[in-house]
Amino acid sequence: MIDNKITIKGDTVVDIQRGAIGHRATWTGLTYTKGCEAGMAEEMEKVIRQAISETGNTQGNEIREKCPDAEDVSVFADTFLSPTLQKTFEITFKTKNKDRVDLEFHHCPLLKAWQDLGFDDAACEKLCDMAMDGDRGIANAMGYEFHLGDTIAKGCKTCEVSFYKKEK
């Protein structure tokens, strides 16, 4: 059972950001489910993954341009994860150094939007993995590896996300 709790409440900017992210998730979720209803599940997943991945690559290139030292993964994290974004997803850093950043997300506004639409756990898990193609694209644009461990959408307590330097 998915438990996507919110502990940071009443922060106007965080609430606005969560709303915008949830709105984006609603579009994606409804696009995917309507495609599934039309018998095009595989095609919709492929197209949505391509679009999200390209979005991630675009965002990653923008982050790379703003990042004072893209060789330092902790500097990337500071550039990518603003204090507001950290509060939005209720992120804690498990590791943060020049070679790697390991994060735990305690809330997901995308998942909340899908839950609010009444999507079952399997659909939420599929949409979550599709959405993570954006983070995979960011890692790719930065020249990093990416790892997704546990996710809230799989019924786990947190989402475990890692960005780290590629092996040479």
Rank of each mutant, 00 (worst) to 15 (best):
150 D>I: 02
42 E>V: 12
71 E>D: 15
149 G>H: 01
18 R>V: 04
78 D>W: 05
21 I>T: 10
133 D>I: 01
18 R>Y: 05
129 D>A: 01
110 L>I: 00
136 R>E: 09
152 I>R: 06
29 G>N: 00
50 Q>A: 15
148 L>W: 02
80 F>Q: 12
51 A>C: 06
155 G>F: 08
17 Q>M: 15
87 K>I: 05
116 D>A: 12
155 G>T: 08
57 N>V: 14
72 D>Q: 01
20 A>I: 12
165 K>A: 09
80 F>S: 13
20 A>S: 10
95 T>D: 07
18 R>L: 07
94 K>E: 14
141 A>K: 07
167 E>W: 11
120 D>Q: 04
32 Y>K: 07
98 K>R: 14
49 R>K: 14
136 R>K: 15
12 T>L: 13
84 T>Y: 09
33 T>Y: 11
164 Y>A: 03
58 T>M: 13
164 Y>Q: 06
3 D>I: 14
102 D>Q: 08
25 A>G: 03
74 S>M: 11
27 W>N: 15
126 K>H: 02
76 F>G: 00
54 E>L: 14
87 K>L: 08
20 A>M: 14
24 R>P: 00
97 N>P: 07
85 L>W: 12
67 C>P: 03
133 D>W: 04
1 M>L: 11
100 R>L: 03
11 D>F: 01
11 D>A: 04
6 I>C: 07
120 D>C: 10
59 Q>N: 09
1 M>Q: 13
28 T>N: 10
137 G>V: 05
43 E>T: 13
145 E>H: 04
31 T>H: 10
111 L>D: 01
116 D>C: 04
72 D>K: 00
96 K>A: 06
27 W>F: 15
89 F>C: 02
52 I>E: 09
149 G>I: 03
155 G>A: 10
